[in-house]
C-alpha cells in the first residue's frame, strides 16, 4: 500500500514536471500514509486533476468556497459514506459540465475539460463509488 502511495506521489510530481504547471505546488495525496486508504488515484486521473482541478481545490488555494466544497487531498481519509457522497457530487458536476466554472473557462479556455478528460474522471468516480457501495 505504502509503495503504491509513494508511486502515486511520485507520479503526481512527474506529471507536474511534464506538464510544467506550477511545479512549486506540493501535491501530497495521503495525509496519513500508514492508514488503509479508501480510494486510489491512477496516473491518468491524477494528470487531469492536477491540470484542471487542483488550482482551486487544494489546501492552500485562495478561494475559500471551492476549498470548502472539495479538497482532493482529503478524499483518501474520508469515511466511506462521506467519500461516496463526494464522489456523487463530483459525478454530478461532471455531468452538468459545471466545473471548472464558466468564468475560469472564459478567461482560460485551456482549462475546459475535454470529453476524454471528463470520461476519465467520471469512470474513475463511478467505479469507485460502485466499489464502495458493493455494486462494482
Amino acid at each position: 500500500m505504502k509503495s503504491t502511495l509513494n508511486f502515486l506521489v511520485f507520479a503526481g510530481f512527474f506529471t507536474l514536471i511534464i506538464v510544467g504547471a506550477a511545479p512549486k505546488a506540493e501535491v501530497v495525496f495521503a495525509s496519513n500514509p500508514e492508514q488503509e486508504q479508501n480510494i486510489a488515484f491512477p496516473e491518468n486521473v491524477m494528470a487531469v486533476i492536477d491540470t484542471k482541478c487542483m488550482g482551486c481545490h487544494k489546501p492552500d488555494a485562495k478561494n475559500e468556497k471551492s476549498k470548502a466544497k472539495l479538497q482532493w487531498v482529503l478524499l483518501a481519509d474520508m469515511e466511506t459514506e462521506e467519500l461516496v457522497a463526494k464522489l456523487d457530487a463530483i459525478i454530478e458536476s461532471l455531468e452538468e459540465g459545471s466545473m471548472p466554472p464558466e468564468g475560469i473557462v472564459a478567461k482560460y479556455p485551456d482549462m475546459k475539460l475535454t470529453e476524454a478528460e471528463t470520461k476519465t474522471l467520471k469512470d474513475w468516480a463511478e467505479s469507485n463509488a460502485d466499489r464502495l457501495l458493493g455494486d462494482g
Binding site: D88, A89, D130, L133
Partner: peptide, 11 residues
Amino acid sequence: SRRSRVKMLKE
C-alpha cells in the same frame, strides 16, 4: 440511486 441517497443524507 443509492449513491445519490448517500449524498443527499450527508448534504
